[in-house]
Amino acid sequence: MTEPTHIVCPHCDAVNRMPQSRLQDAPTCGKCTQPLFTGRPLDVDSARFERHIGRNDIPVLVDFWAEWCGPCKMMAPAYAQAAGQLEPAVRLLKVDTERAQDLSARFAIRSIPTLALFKGGREIARQSGAMDAVRLSAWVRQHIG
């Protein structure tokens, strides 16, 4: 028997346990009954960031961005498109570096957009600069195997 996979709900942040094999079956949250995967990136603050990084068993891709950043705005549609391609294998988060300056400092974000890929609560890869959806998905898949 395989270990259950923990998935944090993008709506209520409850941690759900399920078999890995059920991730493709459009699972819903046991607490709020909303879909666990929406095909869209999730905007998070510092507290929600900690919950999703620390409790999701699937890899988590984070886009560190800011409203005033032209390349960030240019990459936003590609990031949203990548979410539809990568879920349910990867959760995609967006962190506004202006609102979550503690995270910007903690992860030494020096340029934006910066993508950071986390697995098991640890950062495993980082890429600065805007990418299109195809390159972004390929970069993620390269690092998660």
Rank of each mutant, 00 (worst) to 15 (best):
E87C: 03
A116L: 11
R106I: 09
Q81H: 13
D102V: 11
Q101W: 04
T97R: 11
A78I: 10
S128A: 13
G120P: 07
F118C: 01
D102K: 13
A100G: 04
Q127F: 14
A105S: 09
P113L: 04
Y79E: 14
K94G: 02
A80I: 12
A116D: 02
D132T: 13
L117N: 00
L92A: 02
L93K: 01
A82L: 12
A116Q: 11
S104R: 15
L93E: 00
A100M: 08
R91Q: 06
D96N: 12
Q101V: 01
A125M: 03
V134K: 15
S128R: 13
T114S: 03
A105K: 09
L117R: 00
S128L: 10
V90Y: 04
G84R: 07
A82D: 08
D96W: 09
A82R: 12
Q81T: 15
A125H: 02
E123C: 10
R99Y: 13
A125D: 01
S111C: 08
E87M: 06
R99V: 13
I112Q: 08
Q81V: 12
E87G: 01
R91M: 07
A78E: 15
L115Q: 08
Y79M: 15
G121L: 06
I124F: 01
Q85P: 06
I109S: 00
A116G: 05
Q127R: 15
G120K: 10
A133M: 10
A89D: 04
S111Y: 11
R110G: 03
G121H: 06
L103T: 06
A130D: 06
R91T: 08
G120M: 09
F107H: 10
Y79H: 14
R91Y: 03
L115T: 03
Q127W: 15
P113E: 02
D102I: 13
R126Y: 05
A116R: 12
E98K: 13
L115G: 01
A89F: 03
M131T: 09
R122W: 00
R122A: 02
A108M: 10
R99S: 14
A105G: 07
D102Y: 12
R99C: 12
Q85L: 14
L103P: 08
A130V: 07
S104C: 12
Y79D: 11
A89V: 05
S111R: 13
F107A: 05
S128Y: 10
R110V: 04
K94Q: 07
Q101T: 05
R122M: 03
T114W: 02
Q81W: 14
A80M: 11
E98D: 14
I112S: 07
E87H: 03
I124H: 01
D132S: 15
A105M: 10
L103G: 04
I112F: 09
R126Q: 08
L117H: 00
S111H: 11
A89N: 05
A130I: 10
R106V: 07
V134Q: 14
T97F: 11
G121K: 09
A80Q: 15
R91V: 09
R99K: 15
R91F: 04
I112W: 08
A89K: 07
L117A: 00
A80C: 12
T114C: 01
